[in-house]
Amino acid sequence: MRNYINLNGEWNFELLEELPENVALIQPSKKIKVPSCVESFFPEVTKKQFYIYYSRNFSINRQKGKRYFLIFGAVDYYTTVFLNGQIIGEHEGGYSSFEFEITDFIKEDNHVQIVVFDPVDNSKINFGEIPHGKQNGEPNWYTNITGIWQGVRIEERPLAFLKNVIIKASYLKKKIECSYDVSGEIDNVNLTIKKDEKRVLKKEFAKDEKILAFLENAVAWSPENPQLYDLYLEAKNGSQTDVIHKKIGFRDFQVDNEKLLLNGDDFYMIGVLDQDFYPDTLYTIPSKEYLRSSFLKLKKMGINTLRCHVKVPDPVYMELADEIGFIVWLDAPYFDNFSEYSTKRLEKTILKTLERDISHPSLCIYSIINESWGINLDIQAHRKWLE
């Protein structure tokens, strides 16, 4: 497994009306918890425009023959990252995970600085062209969301490693398929599947061979019986090994005669519209235990479907849905104004979400647009984009 350093916790923090040319001159006077929504602690950012500044120190025992990546779960909205005084990357978007390789920048003791700009009006960017949920826009249903609202970590990887891993596990065909990309060169890939810590399948594949295997005694995943397996992909490069671990479930969603089937059988969705907002922490999940408790209460009520409304949820949300047994219907965030810029931003958000979540057995439906928010179906160009 990959080693990592968790950077969650207390960070230095400042609200800046203007950004100096040299961020090294910034002397933060405040503290903030990461991850969190800035509005939870400094509600003034909802109405007044600020640059949001974070910084902290960290130490690392750097290993030879390893690569290092700084990974963000989600930051809203424009993010610029500095490490040891050098800019290492920028990112636009409020929902997608992103990472920067920092192998050439890190030392034993390090200083990371982050500047976030989240527009509250149209003075610097057309806000209506930014994908958002009910936290922004017209109407503004709740409160704005700003800053590092999902976790931050540094991950250690071998020189060659797997990425963009997608799993398809079919119960009806008793089949599992894996696709992936590679950074660097690998020799081969081993596939291992375990159930309750017992190995039920192991197979080796050449580096360019399609990963396809069958498990004849596979047990189906369903909300009533959310059976999960542990999947391991092990990529070898000489003496180095990269291991990816994922929880998987064997299931099939199909449409037949205008009916949605699960594992070949008709079923009823008994669902709730989940805003995925929290009283104190807003967009950020208070804790995994908090969310688990909420999900278990819904299960006792007989709910089997969660429609996560116009938001990309924290990865923990999907993991618990797999484990506890919920069908998940995701809504894409939306824009207020239809344009080339807004549609491209939304398409990127949708693709990144599907890349992250498509392997979850709980994921069933993905809505591109909620009702007709942001589009006008009387306009041909809008209809054509939807097609």
Score class of each variant (00 low, 15 high):
P43M: 10
S123Y: 01
K30R: 13
A74I: 05
V45S: 07
N144S: 15
K48G: 02
V45L: 11
F72T: 03
D76W: 01
W141D: 14
Q135K: 01
K47Y: 06
F82E: 03
E108T: 15
F100A: 05
V75I: 14
P119C: 05
I106F: 07
Q86F: 11
I106H: 02
Y68W: 06
G73A: 10
D118L: 01
K134R: 12
F58W: 11
N136D: 15
F100M: 05
S59D: 15
G128C: 06
V75G: 04
K124P: 00
F42C: 09
F58E: 09
Q63R: 15
F82A: 06
F127Q: 06
N110K: 08
F117K: 09
Y78R: 14
Y68N: 01
V38W: 01
N140Q: 14
I26S: 09
P119E: 06
F72G: 02
Y142F: 14
K124Q: 14
V38H: 03
H111F: 13
F69V: 09
N126R: 13
I60S: 09
N84E: 10
F69I: 08
F58M: 09
G85Q: 11
P131T: 06
I26C: 10
G85H: 10
T143D: 06
P35V: 03
H111S: 04
T79Y: 05
Y78I: 10
S123Q: 10
K107Y: 07
Q86V: 12
I71K: 15
G133Y: 01
Q49A: 13
E92K: 05
F100H: 12
I145W: 04
